[in-house]
Nucleic acid binder design. Structure first.
Lengths: 198, 198
DNA sequence: CAAATATAAGTAAACGTTTATTTACTTACT
DNA sequence: AGTAAGTAAATAAACGTTTACTTATATTTG
C-alpha cells in the first residue's frame, strides 16, 4: 500500500493559509489551492472530506491550537495577575508577529459563520481551548484582585485590545514607520491591567 | 424617461445585508440577491458597477456611515472624558443591538481584504469618519487626563472591548440567558476608563 | 390638454467562466 | 501482487455579468 505523503498534506495547509492571508478566505478555491500546491484537486479530498472540513481543521488545528500552545508558554495560572496578563500579551504579540497567516484566518473567526460555528462547538464540546486562562480569571476574581465579571467579559476587556493592536501592527507594516512596538504593547497592557484590578 | 425605483434600490441593500448576516459574506451572490429581492440581476448592475462596488457602498454608506451618525448622537468632543466614553459605548450598544445586520458586515471589515482596503482608503482620503472622536482623544491627551498614545492605540484600548461585548451579546441571543445587559456594558466601560485615565 | 416620442429602468434568458466534487485511470510502496 | 495514494480530465451547478428585448414615464409635439 502506498503511504500518504506528509509533505503534500503539509503543503495543502501551508498554501491554504498563504492564499487566505494574501487574497482572503473568499478567494480560496479548491482548484486554486491544488494548482498552487502542485497537486491534483482529488488529493485534497483524500485528506479532507470537503472544503468545509478543510477550513475547520485549518482553523482549529493550525490556528487556534498553535496559538493556544504559544500563548500558554511560560504561563502559569497561579502567576500574579499583572504578570500573567503581561505574559499572555507578550506571547500573543510575539506569536502572531511571525505568523501573520494564522492571524489572518483568526480574524475570520469573528465574521465567517462557518468558523464561528466551529469555534463555538469546539469550545463547548471539548470545553477548554483556553482553560488555564479562564481558571486564571476565576482565581483572581475569587481572590478579589479583579472585579467579578463573567469570563466572556473578562476576555473582552483583557484580550480584545491586544488583537486590535496586532491588526494595527500588520497594517503599519506597509507604512514607512511601525508604531506598534513591544514597548507600546506593554504600556497598553498596563492600561488594561490597571482598569481591571480592584 | 423612466425614473429609478427607490424601493428597488433600498430592497437590494436591505436584502444584501440580511443575506450577509444570515449566511455570511462568502454566501452572497448576485443571482441569489436578485432572486431574494424579486428583481432581475441586471437591475443590480444599473445601480452598481459590479459586486465589489455594491459591497463597498454597502459597507461605507449603510454600515460605517449609519454607525457614525448613531455613535455621535448627543456626543460632544468637549465632554468630560468619562462621560464622553460612556456616551460612545452606550450609543454603540444601542445602535447595533437593533442593527445586527450592520454589525455582521462591520465584522468583515477586520478580515475581508476588500473591505479593509475600502475602509483604509476612505479613512485616509476623506480623512475623518470619526474625526470628533479622534479630536476627543487628542484633547484629553493634551489636558493630561489620559495617557499619551497614538489615536490608533486609544481606539484599540477604548473601543475594541465594546465591539467584542457586542459580539457576545449576539451570541447569547440564541442561548437561554442574556448576560450582556446595558448595566454590564456600563460597568465594563468604567473598567476601560479607569485604566486609561492618568 | 392629450397623443406621440424618446430614453433610461427594468426583465428573462443566456453568456463564458469558475466552482466544488467525482470518475476513470496510473503510480508507488508494503 | 494488492491496494491505497495520487493524477488528469470531466461533471453539473453556480458564479458574475451581458444581450436582446419590454416597460414606464418625462418631455415634446399637435
Amino acid at each position: 500500500m502506498r503511504p500518504k505523503s506528509v509533505e503534500k498534506e503539509q503543503a495543502i495547509r501551508t498554501i491554504a493559509l498563504k492564499i487566505i492571508q494574501e487574497e482572503g478566505l473568499e478567494n480560496l478555491s479548491m482548484q486554486k489551492l491544488a494548482k498552487a500546491a502542485n497537486i491534483s484537486p482529488r488529493t485534497i479530498y483524500i485528506k479532507y472530506a470537503d472544503k468545509e472540513d478543510l477550513l475547520i481543521k485549518l482553523f482549529i488545528d493550525e490556528v487556534l491550537g498553535e496559538y493556544e500552545k504559544a500563548v500558554l508558554e511560560k504561563f502559569d495560572e497561579k502567576m500574579d495577575f499583572a504578570e500573567g496578563v503581561k505574559r499572555i500579551w507578550l506571547n500573543t504579540f510575539r506569536y502572531f508577529k511571525t505568523n501573520r497567516q494564522a492571524f489572518a484566518l483568526m480574524q475570520y473567526g469573528n465574521s465567517s459563520p462557518l468558523l464561528t460555528k466551529a469555534f463555538k462547538e469546539r469550545n463547548i464540546q471539548e470545553g477548554q481551548f483556553f482553560a488555564p486562562i479562564h481558571k486564571f480569571y476565576k482565581t483572581n476574581i475569587s481572590k478579589k484582585i479583579i472585579k467579578n465579571f463573567p469570563v466572556e467579559v473578562c476576555r473582552a476587556l483583557l484580550m480584545s485590545p491586544i488583537f486590535n493592536l496586532m491588526n494595527e501592527y500588520f497594517e503599519h507594516l506597509d507604512r514607512p514607520k511601525q508604531i506598534i512596538t513591544e514597548r507600546l504593547i506593554l504600556e497598553s497592557c498596563d492600561v488594561v491591567i490597571k482598569g481591571m484590578i480592584i
